[in-house]
Amino acid sequence: MNKRRSIPNQIHLKNVLLRDRSTGVKDGINWRKSEAFNDSPGQLQEAAHKNWSQYFHRRAGGKGGDWKVILQRGKSYTSGFMKGVGLYSKIIPVPLRNTASAVVCACNRAIDLQSVLKKLSILPLKEIVVVLHNASDEMFTIARNYKNTVVVHFPEAVDPDVERSLGAKLTSANTLLFVDGEQAVDANILARFIWECESRVDIALNDISTRLGLFYQRAGIERFHEFLNRSLNRKDLKANSLSSLPFALSRHALDTMGISNLAVPAKAHAMAILGGLRIGIGGAVKSSSHYERSASNEKWRRAAGDHIEAWREAMTAQGSRLNFADSTRNRSVLGEWER
């Protein structure tokens, strides 16, 4: 049954991909002939992204659809485009209506930063905000080597959560992708975070829950995340939260939560739910630093404090029991309460 249906679908998809490609070739030739043409790879990438976005939103069927198909079509179109131009540069296309930027908080390993930026450089990003502290000359050179980076440097170590929120302040893009500066993630995967945030949700989270194992094997911090979600009636989010990179935020999300609140991720997360933002999943990335983070005592205490702040925020808005009222106990028989 399934097989039968999928054959015509595949033939259909093949035709669509061929059509996208030939349109791409045509558009590539036109761009080459136009005044905007410039043979730098950066210009080529930008033109390919831009043309694909325009084509997708105007003619190629628009909005929704399966991300895998959209990505495939984008690749088909842009490879045609480059063929038409006669030059090649690797990109991962995401059809954007608005602008997207990335925020990277680098730790002090040049190799990591290099590979993270390499992945980001093939995405349709207006800017890549690189936040550095105590950086070596090498780190600076790497960060500056990419065409669209904005580099911020602090002479002293700054907390990564604070750095992220500072980085977010420096860009005006509509969609912000936050990535880990230590861990390079495949651009195909990151692309979906951007796309989800562009098309469907205000916040695209990393789905770490499937990797956590059975409940009793998990670190204590995950219990906070999961209970916070559940206490805010978002059981579906499991243990996923703004505490785990990567994630993407819309401008609307940033405005609702307040950029400065990003410095306390759990609180920002609660505010996002309370603010009625659309929160979904952007993909599943195995985060190495995530486990490292769960380990130490200091990190645990900090997460506890962060979650207390988050609940405090929620309780200010919804009362001490949130949406879980006690309507059955006869408390009047109890007399005095230790309050």
């Binding site: 700054v158 907390d159 604070v162 929120s165 900090r302 404090g305 207390i308 405090r312």
Partner: peptide, 20 residues
């Protein structure tokens, strides 16, 4: 929360909130 502070008595570490 009422008995402690806004962080339930857990320290904020060296997070420089004033920066943002």
């Amino acid at each position: 929360l009422r008995k402690t502070d806004s962080r339930g008595g857990y320290e904020d570490g060296d997070r420089q909130r004033w920066m943002v």
